[in-house]
């Protein structure tokens, strides 16, 4: 077996990998199936693998029954959906702007103690968020940012910055500086070296960075729970309403929400498979 580890293998290998992938994927499959099950099918013993699919759970993401009747009211999930897109979009954009500049700085104009700066920046990302949450609250109170879009966008920008800086620096580091030097010789200004020479070369990097930052922001729970209000709340805290309201976990509803979440991420991951490694290690490992 081992001798074929590197190189071409055939359909036999595919079959083996399929079995392994199926076993590994099984819990996710269970969740996806649950999204189409009614509650009694989900909790059936023995488990029901064949059942008549229902789209009820997806409907209930957006509409819930009123407290006293069978009428339905909007859950406001579309607002959270919009907030998630708006807030993560804005913060990723901002982090990318500031982060790319900084990454370029770190890569091309190293400061004294460059590595220390980079280390501190990475540490802020590795921190358990629970440590800073109390003082962040205080700052939000003083500035009146609690509950506003500006506040949470700023928060997420800072959350995404270390990632963006490390990612973009890794892309800038890979570039061949000779091209830049050549255009400087031709009299190009620093500005046009940056925009005209460097940026076009790291377009793929920009795309990968923004997508991964987007995924991280998209899934963030704690800050959104604590720093937003009814109008600015994003989807992850809204997902928590499926746990312990009037019944135990509403598994179907939760699964339906997870499905909505996972589909875009799935597609993106597929398209960016080559950049995946760099993405999940914050740009610290290139290949």
């Amino acid at each position: 077996m081992k001798k074929k580890a590197i190189g071409q293998s055939g359909w036999l290998w595919t079959a083996l990998a399929s079995v392994v992938a199926f076993i590994y994927f099984f819990p996710v499959l269970f969740i996806i199936l649950t999204a189409f099950r009614s509650r009694s099918d989900t909790l059936a013993t023995p488990p029901k693998w064949i059942f008549s699919p229902t789209f009820e759970n997806f409907y209930h993401i957006f509409f819930r029954s009123m407290a006293n009747s069978t009428e339905y009211v909007a859950t406001g999930f579309h607002v959270y959906f919009f907030n998630s897109i708006y807030i993560s979009g804005m913060s990723v954009l901002l982090a990318l702007l500031i982060g790319t500049l900084a990454a370029y700085g770190f890569s091309r104009h190293p400061l004294r103690g460059n590595d220390t700066y980079l280390f501190i920046i990475l540490t802020t990302r590795m921190l358990p968020p629970i440590i800073v949450i109390v003082p962040i609250f205080l700052i939000f109170r003083i500035t009146g940012l609690a509950g506003t879009y500006t506040g949470i966008i700023l928060m997420y920008t800072a959350f995404n910055l270390p990632f963006s800086i490390w990612m973009m620096k890794s892309f800038f580091d890979e570039l061949n500086t000779e091209i830049e030097d050549a255009s400087r010789m031709d009299g190009a200004s620093e500005r046009s070296v940056f925009f005209g020479v460097c940026i076009p070369q790291v377009k793929a990097g920009l795309a990968a960075t923004s997508v991964f930052a987007l995924i991280l922001t998209w899934n963030e729970f704690l800050f959104s729970l604590l720093l937003t209000n009814k109008l600015t709340r994003t989807m992850p805290p809204a997902m928590a309403r499926t746990i312990g309201g009037e019944i135990n976990v509403d598994y179907g509803l939760l699964a339906a929400m997870i499905c909505l979440f996972i589909i875009p991420i799935f597609l993106i991951t597929y398209l960016l498979q080559n950049q995946l490694l760099r993405g999940v290690t914050f740009g610290t490992i290139k290949k």
């Binding site: 109390v134 109170r141 609690a146 729970l225 604590l226 209000n229 009814k230 805290p237 928590a240 499926t242």
Partner: peptide
């Protein structure tokens, strides 16, 4: 402001102790 039961206490405690006066 409907907050899921599971996170209700955390949310209220955090909001109050932060003094955000929401």
């Amino acid at each position: 402001d409907f907050i899921p039961w599971d996170n209700f206490y955390t949310n209220v405690a955090a909001s109050l102790t932060s003094g955000e006066q929401k």
